[in-house]
Design a protein around this nucleic acid. Structure first.
Length: 467
RNA sequence: GUGGCCAUGGUGCAACGGUUAGCACAGCGGGUUGUGGUCCCGCUGAUGAGGGUUCGAUUCCCUCUGGCCACCCCA
């Protein structure tokens, strides 16, 4: 559309509107339209169990975290990779392990219309491994450093800090077997919390490798069998199903048994032991606060050697046992297991909802970056049109402004400006239009000053401290 | 998946086996046409869904749905 047409078209419409069709009786032209809401005959759908809306009021936390993620990953040279939320079920069954709870009872799976067995992703690592293989990233200079942010799904009973849909931020590094890489990943995770103001401690352990872990598992089973009488029901179950999980039991009765259980570190072979020692050394160098946690095991079967969880630092944890804010580890066999070339890898995942919960609990409030600098108020038709133009000029000058052009009264507009917590309100009325000026009102002090319209943008820029 | 507690306008609460289900906050409108954050007035708006017991149920019972809490597990 050509610019020339603009005016004539508007003018034409204007004349056409001149003679309004006679209307039926209008007893209350100016009265507010009567809002008659229909009776609620239909039930409003609710969110699905364990899923929730993230409302505007909470968005500042999400923006705050997104910013930190961008900053941090950029400074360590990580590239973002987004994978689909839906994948074939086999991907997760093969990676997490058939016996794992994630697959056994938490996978959000269903048959799609084509009768394919699909699942909402329960975690981020397997899809990234899949993508790494699919796109031939072995041909990229190694290591390949990737990160992801997005929703994850687990079919569980919702609870405090646990949802069916939650969001994770995670990184995965492919093609580097060196212990220094484990340390970098741990550092990155720990730095993330530090940067947003949450004090954490890294719990770290080594699960050994395919060679040395079975020895330990056998030893552990033998030991626990001898104490079987003292174990809780869950532990008896674990003994048969997933022996390493025995170390995870929180049942008071099982604690003494756990205390004297064989320690995995004593069973690591030379290489695994060295690897662990070096990871710890690097962490010492970087002054990352960690504790060795010989009882730490993780929920996925694919880990080997280094595993870690990021826990709330003791001083911030209030009483009860604290849940992990994030965790990760090394998974050197996973790429091969999914049909790729043998490629060492490690990474972590962080639960964003839990981080936000913690921010709120510690009263850490990100600044409200959506607070408008300027609210534009107008009075009368001519002023409205001029204000609308100024609105555009402000936007072009990257000054965040808000307005409500359909509101008539100045009082109403100031109320909105106040509620939006605007720093300044620009007032444009009949008088200002005639004088070629605007009024700038400081919403905190209530002081007003008259400024020439032509200088408006420059003056506002000066006031909000921009040049 | 197991067990417990719970469900009233947008939010937080109240009420009773029986008239128009109260209150506060928020929202919208107004307190004479150009000044907000205080005040005053008015309006809108709810018993989660489905069954049953009963002359009558928002109230009692059951099922479902959802929430909270613990376990399991996890982020």
């Amino acid at each position: 559309m050509s610019m020339k047409q603009k005016k004539p078209v508007a003018a034409k419409i204007k004349t056409a509107v001149k003679k309004p069709a006679p209307r039926a009786a209008t007893p209350s032209e100016n009265a507010a339209p009567k809002v008659v809401s229909a009776p609620r005959s239909v039930a409003t759908p609710q969110t699905l169990r364990g899923m929730r809306d993230i409302l505007p009021a909470e968005q500042k936390y999400w923006r705050f975290i997104s910013r930190k993620i961008e900053e941090l990953t950029a400074s360590y040279g990580y590239e973002r990779l987004d994978t689909p939320i839906l994948e074939e079920t086999a991907l997760f069954v093969r990676t997490a392990g058939k016996q794992s709870d994630i697959v056994e009872k938490e996978l959000f799976s269903f048959l799609d219309k084509g009768e394919d067995n699909v699942s909402l992703r329960p975690e981020g690592t397997a899809p990234l491994v899949r993508a790494y293989i699919n796109h031939g990233m072995v041909n990229l200079p190694q290591p390949v450093k990737l990160y992801y942010v997005g929703p994850m799904f687990r079919y569980e009973r919702p609870q405090h800090g646990r949802f069916r849909e939650h969001h994770q931020f995670g990184v995965e590094v492919f093609g580097d077997a060196n212990a220094v890489q484990d340390s970098e990943v741990i550092l990155l995770a720990q730095l993330f919390y530090k940067e947003i103001g949450i004090k954490t401690t890294v719990h770290i352990n080594s699960l050994g490798c395919a060679t040395c872990r079975p020895n330990y598992a056998n030893e552990l089973v033998t030991y626990y069998r001898s104490k079987r009488a003292h174990l809780c029901e869950d532990c008896k179950r674990r003994l048969a199903k997933n022996p390493l999980r025995l170390l995870d039991c929180k049942e008071p009765g099982c604690q003494p048994v756990k205390e004297t259980a064989p320690n995995i570190v004593d069973f690591l072979d030379e290489e695994c032991k060295n690897h662990l020692m070096r990871v710890l050394e690097y962490l010492d160098d970087l002054q990352v606060p960690y504790v060795l946690a010989p009882h730490l095991v993780r929920g996925f079967d694919y880990y080997n050697r280094t595993v870690f969880e990021i826990m709330l630092a003791e001083e911030s944890a209030e009483g009860g046992q604290s849940v992990a804010l994030g965790g990760g580890g090394r998974y050197d066999t996973l790429v091969e297991q999914l049909g790729g070339r043998p490629t060492p890898a490690c990474g972590f995942g962080i639960g964003i909802e839990r981080v936000i919960l913690q921010l709120k609990q510690q009263m850490i409030e990100p600044s409200d970056d959506r607070r408008p600098d300027v609210f534009l108020a107008q009075l009368g038709d001519a002023a409205r049109r001029k204000a609308f133009m100024l609105f555009e000029e402000l936007r072009a000058a990257s000054i965040p402004a808000t307005a409500n052009f359909s509101k008539g009264s100045l009082k109403g507009q100031l109320e909105i400006a106040n509620r939006l917590n605007a720093k300044y309100t620009v007032i444009l009325g009949q008088k200002e239009v005639i004088d070629g000026t605007i009024l700038i009102r400081d919403m905190e002090s209530g002081m007003q000053e008259i400024v020439l319209y032509d200088k408006a943008v420059a003056e506002i820029k000066k006031k909000i401290g921009r040049t």
